[in-house]
Design a binder for these strands. Structure first.
Length: 580
DNA sequence: CTAACACCTG
DNA sequence: CAGGTGTTAG
């Protein structure tokens, strides 16, 4: 058994890049600069003594962690490494400062396969719910209208429905006219009169308010809007989420002996189900940023890789083409070599509502048979189209709903009617934390402005902002610790080629991360995250292998690289009620 | 001075 | 995860 074959690369689904320009702007304008120390003092040589102490301490810490791992078999990839062969577990490891309670409890994962709360019935059921919600909404609407009667009779609200006036424009042209509609929504012909436009007007057009309008009406209106937003969101989420087979393990096939890593066609193929996906409404395809696989990092390896086939740059939904960083050949100052990394940006984010049917499918670009699925080093890049990507459901649409009431009406109580969502009226709640964690899959270094954009229901102030920034800092800490830990583990396991280190969904590392950021697995971790994770792991591996870790600041270069790999976050996250 | 980051602790 | 600390940079 070749110790080098670890974690084989999953055929990443293509990530879509439908990004929203807005985010782009923010990000680019204020790239996550690792704090102020962008210069990476690693060049400065600390005093020996000092350095030693420092390193010792850190190493001890990591080793402690690693040691913990030693207790659990097959740290990297289940099956790839024998339980017993973790050769050297640092004997020096003491110093259990952090209680890194790495679960390792695979027990938790076991139930995963079947664990989806049976929401797979995305079809009729959901449709019904939606229909119902619509009716209710209509009733409410009528009530409101009656209240406001005096004024808007003239406008004839009824009629405005068809004029998808204002909103239609906003409705993400290109993404389909039914922004908030679920796949099944279209069909409901009748319900159509109650289009987003109508709702939009109702909630936004001030003209509908009786001039002298009782404040209560205003409040009612907002509440209604909000409730509707949430309702729609939740329904959509049900449809979109439905992760029936996520996480199903690939089993030991997760990795493949190096020897065949490049060419042998995976036997386990089996899964391409474009059809299923095709059925989805607007599949949003994605793109993937640049393959991470061959990051030639220090080696200048092939340049083959970024094949971003032009076809891929489709203008998918919203995103102004401009952002398709796919081709980004950016050359970065110092890390010219790693430039490729930087250019990539993946945005996909999908809840892959996973292919309705065979969920357990391993992602393989079915349409691109030519690519060798196993290629650990070349993460299958862009195979375009990809029905693979199960429809991320460009929330773009949704966003318009939930955000309608941009009005920051979080004036204290008043959300009486809505029990469910814990939307905040102040401060951060668990829901926000959860959302932040999921966002971490896309962005490791969110700017405060980005956070503000994605947490519309939060009233930011210094404290809140700091707290959220702190969250991400903590997320990163955990992330990097894991990376270092696994990188060292790989080294001790005899891995020599960093390219062999790829984070797969069935790897221990992935589990650890997923457990931390996505407990419950109710979210499908985007492939781009796996790529970033793989890359991070490789970087740590290289650094440690090269003995760079003797430098007190050896991680900074890695941080810098990673900080540039944030992806765009799916629009749905902008919904204040997102994770529900 | 502040924001943001990393690192350490509890 | 929150606190605390030290650092950097604007």
């Amino acid at each position: 058994m070749d110790p080098n074959s670890i974690l084989l690369s999953p055929q990443p689904r293509i990530c879509s890049h439908l990004a929203e320009a807005c985010m782009e702007g923010e990000r680019s304008s204020s790239p996550p600069e690792l704090g102020r120390d962008s210069q990476f003092p690693w060049s400065q040589v600390p005093s020996p003594a000092d350095l030693d102490e420092h390193i010792q301490a850190k190493r001890a810490r990591v080793e402690t962690i690693v040691q913990g791992m030693c207790l659990s078999p097959n740290p990297l990839v289940p099956g790839s490494i024998q339980a017993g062969d973790t050769p050297r577990c640092p004997e020096t490891a003491r110093e259990r400062k952090r209680k890194q309670s790495l679960p390792t409890q695979q027990g938790l994962l076991i139930p995963a396969p079947d664990r989806h709360q049976g929401n797979r019935k995305g079809g009729p059921h959901v449709r019904e719910q939606l229909h119902l919600l619509k009716q209710q909404l209509r009733h409410l609407q009528e009530h409101i209208l009656q209240a406001a009667e005096p004024r808007n009779t003239a406008q004839g609200l009824r009629g405005c429905g068809k004029g998808k006036g204002p909103l239609s424009a906003k409705q993400r042209n290109g993404c389909g006219p039914y922004p908030w509609a679920s796949s099944s929504d279209h069909q409901q012909g009748s319900s159509k009169d109650f289009s987003g436009a109508e709702k939009h007007r109702l909630s936004e057009d001030p003209r509908f308010l009786p001039s002298g309008a009782p404040a209560s009406l205003e409040i009612l209106r907002k509440e209604l809007t909000r409730a509707v937003s949430r309702a729609v969101d939740s329904v959509l989420q049900k449809v979109l989420l439905d992760p029936p087979g996520r996480l199903t393990q690939l089993g030991s096939q997760g990795w493949v002996p190096e020897s065949r890593s490049e060419s042998s066609p995976p036997v386990a193929e089996a899964c391409e189900n474009p059809l299923a996906l095709a059925a989805l409404p607007r599949r949003v395809q994605l793109q993937a940023g640049v393959p991470v696989g061959n990051l030639p990092l220090a080696k200048t390896l092939d340049s083959s890789g970024y094949p971003i086939s032009p076809r891929m740059i489709p203008k998918l939904c919203q995103g102004p083409p401009a952002n398709c960083p796919l081709t980004a050949p950016s050359h970065i100052q110092e890390d010219q070599i790693r430039s490729q990394l930087l250019g990539r940006r993946c945005n996909n984010g999908h809840w892959s509502s996973s292919p309705p049917r065979d969920s357990s499918c391993q992602r393989h670009p079915s349409s691109e048979p030519a690519l060798q699925p196993w290629r650990t080093t070349k993460l299958q890049p862009l195979v375009l189209g990809q029905q693979q990507c199960p429809l991320p459901f460009t929330s773009a649409h949704l966003e318009s709903l939930p955000l309608l009431p941009s009005v920051k009406m979080e004036q204290g109580g008043l959300h009486a009617g809505t029990e469910a969502l814990p939307f905040s009226s102040e401060g951060l709640n668990p829901g926000h934390l959860k959302k932040a964690k999921l966002m971490f899959f896309f962005t490791r270094y969110p700017s405060s402005s980005l956070l503000k954009a994605y947490f519309p229901d939060v009233q930011f102030n210094r404290c809140i902002t700091s707290q959220m920034i702190k969250w991400f800092s903590n997320f990163r800490e955990f992330y990097y610790i894991q990376m270092e830990k696994f990188a060292r583990q790989a080294i001790s396991d005899g891995v020599t080629n960093p390219k062999m280190l790829v984070v797969l969904r069935n790897s221990e590392l992935f589990r650890a991360l997923n457990m931390h950021y996505n407990k419950g697995n109710d979210f499908e971790v985007p492939d781009c995250f796996l790529e970033i994770a793989s890359l991070t792991l490789q970087e740590f591996f290289r650094a440690v292998s090269a003995g760079r870790d003797s430098d007190p600041s050896w991680k900074k270069p890695i941080y810098k690289i990673i900080s540039k790999l944030d992806s765009d976050i799916p629009e749905i996250f902008k919904s204040s009620s997102y994770p529900q």
